[in-house]
């Protein structure tokens, strides 16, 4: 009789533990936690351009 009670109590303990694990997983999986990346603002920037010229020596006379 006592052995039966122990077996029942152990089964109940195991079931409660399973319920506890299930509650945890179900609760977490129901929530969609967004993967948010917060970037710092950029406060300055620069951009460059290039001027180029090929200057040949005048072939004629100059003024």
């Amino acid at each position: 009789m006592k052995e039966n009670l122990i077996v029942i109590l152990l089964i109940v303990a195991i079931l409660l533990s399973v319920v506890s694990i299930a509650v945890t997983f179900v609760s977490l999986n129901l929530k969609q936690v967004p993967d948010v990346t917060i970037s710092q603002g950029k406060l300055d920037d620069s951009s460059q351009g290039k001027v180029s010229i090929i200057i040949n020596t005048p072939s004629g006379g100059s003024g």
């Binding site: 351009g49 180029s52 010229i53």
Partner: peptide, 17 residues
């Protein structure tokens, strides 16, 4: 006509914001 920087000359303009 007396430019003494003959040949290829380049310069860079930088815009900063």
């Amino acid at each position: 006509n007396d430019a003494n920087k003959t040949g290829e000359q380049t310069d860079t303009i930088t815009a900063s914001a």
